[in-house]
């Protein structure tokens, strides 16, 4: 295998292109595709850290939450700048989630395994209760922007922002995350991280600067999370409530997506996100009320059949065949 191979991007972009085509061509499919893309992007972003390092950040949703607040604050206080406030929001979202990731990284990344995972829950929950407790950023009442956005940007533009533009941005984030992933995989950093995932102590002994790469992956992953929170939540939904954006359920969903597709693979989170999103959407359309009862056994069966995820499984099977050029 060539060391620097971008071929694996091909099937990935094929999937993206197909999705975009469906969204544009089939009436009424735009929002559902945006919904699938939310999960795809979430999986991609989460995979950069969890998939590559093997560390599970249970409090990951805090980065999304902070990103959502970043965007909300920018729109709320700088709406006079017009649409520039949205650019500002994106910037603020990234900065805020990077700051948090630095803080968490400095403290929690010293912990191993489950201790790290749970410590991050502590960060997430602590943050949420701090916001509610000292009534920061509106406390539990959150920040509601619909009216403000409609007044300052105009009705049409505001609607366009939350029903079209935010979805385009999510797709862009998903593409960017994929490219970042392959870029990392192709570089020394990727190999270092894989070594770290197999055996952190051994990697350290081999002279790999484990801490540096770990933190780099963590920050990258966190800033993507901040972007997703800013775009898929604040810009799209036009409100932010703390109990909503610090809900650990989203982290669990991210883990499920990554595991479903295959941790550490490029295509895995995309496949996982699609399966999860499509199932969730269509089951709730076809079997309203009992969709989760059907979804749960399907997830369990999938993981029993493919313990390393679907892409992980194919990768293993097709190790010697030509498929392997297109899978990472």
């Amino acid at each position: 295998m060539k060391i620097r191979s971008y071929k694996p991007l091909l099937p990935l972009f094929l999937i993206y292109a197909l999705l975009i085509l469906i969204a544009v061509a089939v009436p009424g499919m735009w929002q559902p595709v945006a919904f699938f893309m939310f999960y795809v992007a979430l999986g991609q972003a989460f995979n950069i850290f969890m998939g590559l390092t093997g560390y599970v950040d249970f409090g990951y949703v805090a980065f999304l939450g902070l990103g959502a607040y970043g965007m909300a604050i920018a729109i709320k206080y700088f709406s006079s700048l017009g649409l520039i406030s949205i650019l500002l929001g994106i910037l603020l979202a990234v900065v805020m989630s990077i700051l948090l990731s630095l803080a968490v990284g400095a403290v929690a990344l010293r912990l191993r395994g489950a201790y790290f995972a749970i410590a991050t829950i502590g960060v997430n929950e602590g943050f949420r209760y701090l916001i509610e407790g000292v009534r920061l950023w509106g406390g539990s009442e959150g920040i509601v922007l619909s009216g403000l956005m409609r007044r300052t940007f105009g009705r049409e533009t505001a609607n366009l922002l939350s029903t079209f533009f935010s979805d385009i941005l999510i797709i862009a984030i998903a593409i960017l995350a994929a490219m970042t992933t392959i870029w990392i995989l192709n570089r020394k950093m990727g190999y270092a991280l894989l070594a770290l995932r197999e055996d952190e102590d051994a990697a350290r002994v081999m002279g790999i600067n484990v801490t540096k790469y770990k933190i780099m992956a963590f920050i990258t992953s966190a800033s993507f999370a901040g972007l997703i929170g800013a775009v898929a939540w604040t810009l799209k939904l036009t409100y932010v409530f703390p109990e909503d954006v610090f809900n650990i359920h989203y982290t669990v969903e991210a883990i499920v997506i990554v595991m479903l597709g295959g941790a550490g693979t490029l295509l895995g989170p995309v496949v996982g996100g699609l399966i999860y999103g499509v199932l969730k959407y269509y089951l709730s359309v076809v079997f309203p009320g009992i969709q989760l009862l059907i979804l749960a056994p399907m997830l369990i069966l999938t993981i029993i059949a493919f313990p390393e995820g679907i892409v992980g499984f194919i990768k293993k099977k097709g190790k010697k065949s030509r498929i392997s050029y297109y899978l990472r």
Binding site: G28, Q31, A34, K280, Y281, S284
Partner: peptide, 22 residues
């Protein structure tokens, strides 16, 4: 016509669009 939004803020938009368009 009804679907279950599962009180999920992501699903609800898709379902509303499906109701409106399809």
């Amino acid at each position: 016509k009804y679907y279950d939004d599962q009180s999920n803020k992501e699903v609800v938009k898709s379902l509303v669009e499906k109701l409106a368009v399809q």
